[in-house]
Design a protein around this nucleic acid. Sequence first.
DNA 1: TCAACAATGCTGTCAATGACAACAATGATG
DNA 2: CATCATTGTTGTCATTGACAGCATTGTTGA
Lengths: 202, 202
Amino acid sequence: MPASRPAESRPYHHGDLRSTLLAGAERTLREKGTGALSLRELAREAGVSHAAPGRHFKDKQALLDALALVGYDRLGQALSAADDPALPLERRLTVLARAYLAFSIDNAELLELMYARKHEPDASEQMAAAVDRTVGSLERVIADAQERGEIVAGDPQHLTLLTGATLQGIASFAAGGMLAPEAALDGIEEFVHLLLHGLKPR
Amino acid sequence: MPASRPAESRPYHHGDLRSTLLAGAERTLREKGTGALSLRELAREAGVSHAAPGRHFKDKQALLDALALVGYDRLGQALSAADDPALPLERRLTVLARAYLAFSIDNAELLELMYARKHEPDASEQMAAAVDRTVGSLERVIADAQERGEIVAGDPQHLTLLTGATLQGIASFAAGGMLAPEAALDGIEEFVHLLLHGLKPR
DNA sequence: TCAACAATGCTGTCAATGACAACAATGATG
DNA sequence: CATCATTGTTGTCATTGACAGCATTGTTGA
């Protein structure tokens, strides 16, 4: 394979600047947080001029939007990889919850971006679709269980919302440092149990 | 009362710049979001020079930290005003939940700031204390109920965590636009019921 | 083959910003 | 009232996002 880069005289065209920028952005995000993200800095890291990113992202916001979409893709993959319809309900939910929690711990800043509500209208549509896909996988689990009578009757959307909110809340606590990541992962089984069986004694 | 401001020749000293800046910051936050916050713009609005804010807030971050503390105060007041220990458990929780939800809808950006995890170490201590106070009020409700046998046994901190996480999740959905504010407020009763009684049929 | 043309990079420039330094006015204290 | 801390002020800097205008490369069709 050719030397990774000919140091002197790189080709005029980078070849894959868009991906490089996204990758760099995610690394920066992970290492220094959203606020530290600078288009010019990314350009420097990629070895291109300060205006080059503008060809691929009209805006800083456009880059952030693209990054958020990457996040939704990855989350979607993680969730569908983790879901096993063969498992009994409580176990199935626990596994899903653990996957979501793990993702949100590993990708805290990315998740923040995904949930940010300042996307440009154009990107917002794709974003909404991505959210639907993600929430959908949970809704399917709930609906399945409901058909089998393993879950109380009621609008499955409401039940999904509650379940999702609980997960999101725990994830948000873990990401915010109010709850140690290991503690969150360790407690997940108990949380799912409580969610299914309720806080009131039976 | 004296003309609100003598337009020409304001006194050299503003008199209450710190509060003015905080108030202005919160207004900007509410109207244009966190990202649009500029120290210089705030200075302009307050009618002082661009460097004046530096006397009160070493940093932009310092201002944000102070703002977050304001938020915790306000949230604490809202919660303790709403809590009524005389109510039966489910009702009591519902009322508390509604108060939290209302606050988080009315103060979405502020809440985001409060949960941000980039506070300067100094402010972090006060922040942690504020969080404890807030969580504490919920923990008391749970502990009370537990003593009366109205809630399953188990570490009250875990139960509080789950309850808080659920609330936080719903609030986060509402703030993020995935759930219409009215829908969230309307559904709160059902959510609390589900939380107490569990998703499984009894 | 080669003449448009689109895509992608580059340099230059601008206004806005946060941070800091040096200095000025005011107010409080002994 | 002399001294000193507080709080403002002006001036300056490097960084940044955005844009305009130009340059290089790749593609496409006559």
